[in-house]
Design a protein around this nucleic acid. Structure first.
Ligand code: FES
Ligand code: FES
Lengths: 145, 145
DNA sequence: TAAATAAAGGATATTTAGATCCTTTTATCT
DNA sequence: AGATAAAAGGATCTAAATATCCTTTATTTA
C-alpha cells in the first residue's frame, strides 16, 4: 500500500506526536527504536518531514524532534502520505492507465474511485490529534522502560 | 497500489480475455502494443500466469495466448493479483506493523480493515467474464486498426 | 525434412527504493 | 573557549523491481 519511507514516516510522526503531547523532545535513536525502523534511513525521512513543516527539529545537546501542540489538530495524515508517496494511490488508475479519466475510464474505474475516495477520506479526516485520542496508539511502539 | 508487474498482468489478461471471447489467439507483440507495456517484461509475466493456469499458451506459428471460454467466469481478478503481488495489500498492516492483529491493532486498524476488505471484495467478486461485460473494456486498449 | 514462427527460459542490464556511513553544522554545557 | 551532543547533508552501498537480450524448445507449414 505505502512505501517503507511512508510507513516509517507515519509511525515516526505519530510517535513524536505522542511524546510531544507530554512535552518530551525525542531523539532519532529513540524514535528508530520505538517504531522499529533503521536509524539512518529514518533520519532522512525526518529531514523531509522537517522541511515540510510537519515536525520541528532541534539541534545540539537535548535536541531532537517535536511537534507543536497547536499543530496536532492541524496536521492530517494525508499530508504526510502526500509528502512521502505523492497522491498516485488516491488519484491514479488502479490498472496503471496513464490517466484516471472519467471520460475514458477503465473497466474498474467506478469501483476504484469509490474505494480510493474512501481511503483518501480516511487520511483526510484523521489528524494527529485524532490518532492520539484512539485507544491503541501505544500498541504501535516498542517501549522498553 | 499495485506493482508494474501486476498492472501489466491484469491488463494483459483482460486483453487476452477480450480477444479470446471472439476466438482469437493473440501473440505477445500484439498484447504488449495493446496494453502499452514493454514486450520482454510482459513475456515474463505471461509465463507466470501460464504456469499458474490463468492463461494458456500455444507455441509455434499461429501460436500465442488465449483463455478458455469456460475459464472466463471462473477466474477472479484477485487470483491474478495474488499470484503477482501476494496478499499484503489485503491483509497487511497499512502502517507497516509486522502483524495486522485484531488483538494488537494499530490506531487505524479498524478503518484499514474496512477499506482493505472492500478492496478485496472488489477483486473477489469481479471475474474476467464480468469485466468483459462492462461498457468500457475497450477503453483500455491501444487498438490501431 | 527444412525453414519459419512463437513462446520458454536463462542471463544480464538498468533503475529505483531502501539503507548505511561519514563529515559538517548548530547548539549546549562545563 | 573547548568538549560534547544531536540533527543536517552528502556520498555511497545494497537489494529489489523493472527491463532487455539471446538461446532453446515446441509447433507448423512448405
Ligand atoms: S481509469 Fe482506471 S481507475 Fe480510473
Ligand atoms: S494492525 Fe495496522 S491495519 Fe491492522
Amino acid at each position: 500500500m505505502f512505501s517503507k519511507s511512508c510507513e516509517y514516516g507515519l509511525r515516526a510522526t505519530i510517535f513524536i506526536a505522542e511524546q510531544s503531547s507530554s512535552n518530551q523532545v525525542v531523539g532519532l535513536k529513540t524514535i528508530a527504536k520505538a517504531i522499529n525502523s533503521p536509524e539512518a534511513f529514518t533520519a532522512k525521512i525526518l529531514q523531509v518531514l522537517t522541511k515540510n513543516n510537519i515536525i520541528s527539529s532541534i539541534k545540539g545537546p537535548h535536541g531532537g524532534f517535536r511537534i507543536e501542540e497547536s499543530r496536532m489538530k492541524e496536521i492530517k495524515l494525508i499530508q504526510i502520505i502526500t509528502i512521502l508517496d505523492g497522491n498516485k494511490i488516491f488519484y491514479g488508475c488502479g490498472l496503471g492507465l496513464d490517466q484516471c479519466d472519467e471520460n475514458f475510464p477503465c473497466p474498474l474505474h467506478n469501483q476504484f474511485v469509490k474505494v480510493k475516495e474512501e481511503l483518501r477520506m480516511m487520511f483526510e479526516t484523521n489528524t494527529l490529534q485524532d490518532i492520539l485520542f484512539t485507544e491503541n496508539v501505544k500498541n504501535m511502539f516498542w517501549l522498553k522502560r
